[in-house]
Amino acid sequence: MRLYFASHRAVWRVGDVAGIDRSLLAGALERYRLPAGTPVLLDEAMRPVEPVSSWFRSLALARRDAKSMRAYAYTVLMLLGFLQARGTDLRSATEMDILQFRQWRREDTEGTVGAPAGTGTLP
Rank of each mutant, 00 (worst) to 15 (best):
T112M: 13
D21M: 02
G87S: 07
Y72C: 06
R47K: 01
R2P: 11
L99P: 08
G19T: 07
R70F: 06
Q84L: 02
R22I: 11
L59E: 07
T38K: 03
L41I: 10
Q84G: 03
G27P: 14
I20M: 02
L24D: 07
L83V: 05
R22M: 13
L41H: 02
D89I: 11
G37K: 01
V40L: 02
V40C: 01
R106A: 12
T38S: 03
V14G: 10
G111D: 04
A45L: 11
E30G: 09
P123H: 12
L90F: 12
A45S: 15
L99K: 15
T75A: 14
L83G: 10
P39V: 03
A26S: 12
T109H: 12
E110D: 11
D16T: 06
Y32D: 00
L83A: 11
E95Q: 15
R102Y: 08
V14R: 14
S54H: 06
R86G: 11
L79Q: 05
V52T: 09
F5S: 15
T38G: 03
F5L: 14
W104L: 03
A117P: 05
L61A: 08
R102C: 11
L29V: 12
V40F: 00
G118D: 01
R9I: 12
Y74P: 00
V14L: 10
T112R: 14
L80S: 10
I98F: 05
G87V: 06
L80M: 08
L25G: 07
R102L: 08
R102F: 04
A62D: 04
V40S: 02
R64L: 10
R13K: 09
T94W: 00
M96K: 14
E30V: 06
R64K: 07
R105D: 07
P116H: 06
V11F: 15
P123K: 14
S53Y: 02
L77E: 07
L42F: 09
Y4N: 02
T109K: 06
I20L: 03
E50R: 05
F56M: 01
R106L: 14
G81P: 08
L61I: 05
P51L: 05
L80T: 13
L90Q: 09
I98D: 15
S23Y: 04
V76I: 06
R64Y: 09
F82T: 01
S58G: 08
S53A: 04
D108H: 04
F82Y: 07
L77R: 12
A26P: 01
L25Q: 07
D16C: 10
H8I: 13
S7E: 01
T119M: 02
S53H: 00
T121N: 09
T38E: 05
L77W: 11
G87F: 04
A28R: 08
